[in-house]
Amino acid sequence: MQIQGKAGQRPSDIYFFATCVIDQFYPGAGMDAITLLEREGIRVHFPEEQTCCGQPAFTSGFPDEARKVAAHQLTLFPENWPVVVPSGSCGGMMKLHYPGLFAGDPARKAQSEALSARIYEFTDFLVNVLGWKPEDKGGDCTVVLHTSCSARREMGVHLTGQQLLGGLDKVTVAQQDHEAECCGFGGTFSIKQPEISGAMVEDKLKSLKATGAERVVSADCGCLMNILGHAAWKDQQEGRKTASLPGEHIASFLLRRTSK
């Protein structure tokens, strides 16, 4: 089966799987990603019935529940279009874990394997499918990038974010210590092991701040929720009125930098 959107072929249509975190907590990031894709002349389809990839249950040890939720998502992408996911972790779930999740269900397994080949993480899609080169229209700015562990280790797309930011003329990408280390989110981990999770996000924030960057960007809203949530808490604790390290999804940053 020829999949539209393989390198070199510019798809005319794509599906957008927003993830439940973006739908409910970071809708702006989803809007910006869609706007950016549409600006590239792509028709973006948002299946209204989408909910969640099922990962929270899957990683918590409840595969049956994850399977039920995943089975529903499987029905949402009938056309042979790429499915763009603005999150390495949800993308990784759909691309890498769906086939295993449906190992005992031949029909769904085949469906999920076919879907797997069409799943693209957002930055990977911009760079490797669209060959998009951002044209920087903003002023001087230093940012620091946090790449999620799933994007880095599962999806292997840790370079595309760097590449996109590196393509912005006036943007300096600051290097942090322990860059490849997890921010400590880990879904339910943050609630089950709050002390360790807290220590990890504390260290992550310190590393990010130590770069002197003005803002942090990430292609994963789970990590952002954790890092920015801690940064804001710290600001409150220390009586700061403005965010000492603001942050946003990389889609929002890229859209702003490339718009007049």
Binding site: Y26, P27, G28, M31, S190, V201, N226, W233
Partner: peptide, 25 residues
């Protein structure tokens, strides 16, 4: 929000979901 808020501000859903914003648009 229990353990979450020991070192983080509470999680708060956005006033409008992505699907609402898309409809508005």
């Amino acid at each position: 929000q229990g353990p979450w808020t020991t070192v983080r501000v509470p999680l708060k859903p956005a006033p409008k979901r992505l699907r609402d914003l898309l409809k508005d648009k």
